[in-house]
Design a protein around this nucleic acid. Sequence first.
DNA 1: CCCAGTAGCTTGACATGTCAACGATTAATG
DNA 2: CATTAATCGTTGACATGTCAAGCTACTGGG
Lengths: 165, 165
Amino acid sequence: MKHPVAMDTNFKDDGDTPYDTSKPSSFLTYRLSRVQARLNAQAADLLRRHGGVPLAQWRVLLLLYGGDVSSQKEIVGLAQFDKGQVSRLVDTLIERGLISAKSGGKDKRVRTLSLTDDGTAIVERLIPIMRERQRQLLSVFSAEEQTRLMEFISRLDGVADKLDI
Amino acid sequence: MKHPVAMDTNFKDDGDTPYDTSKPSSFLTYRLSRVQARLNAQAADLLRRHGGVPLAQWRVLLLLYGGDVSSQKEIVGLAQFDKGQVSRLVDTLIERGLISAKSGGKDKRVRTLSLTDDGTAIVERLIPIMRERQRQLLSVFSAEEQTRLMEFISRLDGVADKLDI
DNA sequence: CCCAGTAGCTTGACATGTCAACGATTAATG
DNA sequence: CATTAATCGTTGACATGTCAAGCTACTGGG
């Protein structure tokens, strides 16, 4: 990947803490944002180089491939994507012929979604590659550290909703 | 804030690991993405409710207020924003009268940026609010945990560039 | 049955983020 | 000094993400 290495210890802040450059804690949301952006860029690049789809579309395809979901509502519930975004992602995937939608259910508002053969082929081609990426990403953490990291993230997730300002 | 609580332990994956819902580690990038989105939404909402500017613009204003930067290059270097994005953010901030730009330097490509009085007023009004938010966010971590969390993020940051796929 | 409320989805509007091509200027090097 | 290369910035194109208004279909209480 790219990325100029710069600033890992030398930037000012994350947009949330104005001064106070001395305390690493001040950089938390900034650094989260950056590492998140880098991981996304790496995943998107990987998908592009292997002739795949954009990252957001890929995530929808995976959910459908796993058989976990068959409607937009379920995609929204599982992945916590915005419903508007899902609506447009589904449109795009249908246009590209990677998924199909049937409206025959009881509830006429709902379209039942499924992968086409093309969509299935793409997912099955990319899955091993994405699994290998995941393996390499996690290789820098011990099992205990992985657990600890996830627990930290959960805690952040919890506190984000409780801020009383 | 909003957010339907759902799925914190029950979703399939993060778009990077197709199956394997049993291992929390499989959810890492997904959960990072979600917690990051939630923190961003919370910060943006806070800025909006207090009559401020959008989050990205806010971050640029803060960098300028701190006196750390005076050109787009320095913003890109410090904050690791995309230079195209910075170019447009600066345009917007100038249109809104929050910053000003002078082209008088040696390097005729560079504009020297600074906050206007309006820009300074907005930043100084919002800073205490954002500092309180940061304090509350970090209140769920002990000092030792904060250090540990930052170290984890650094490790992720490092490995993201080294993936050989 | 009626109809007010809710649910699933669509759409518009905007903000954010990323990449790549390009223009202008400056720096480096023969 | 003259090219060439690198740097700073702009712009176009597109992907992503978020919010809110509105549409249609379903649902439940009267």
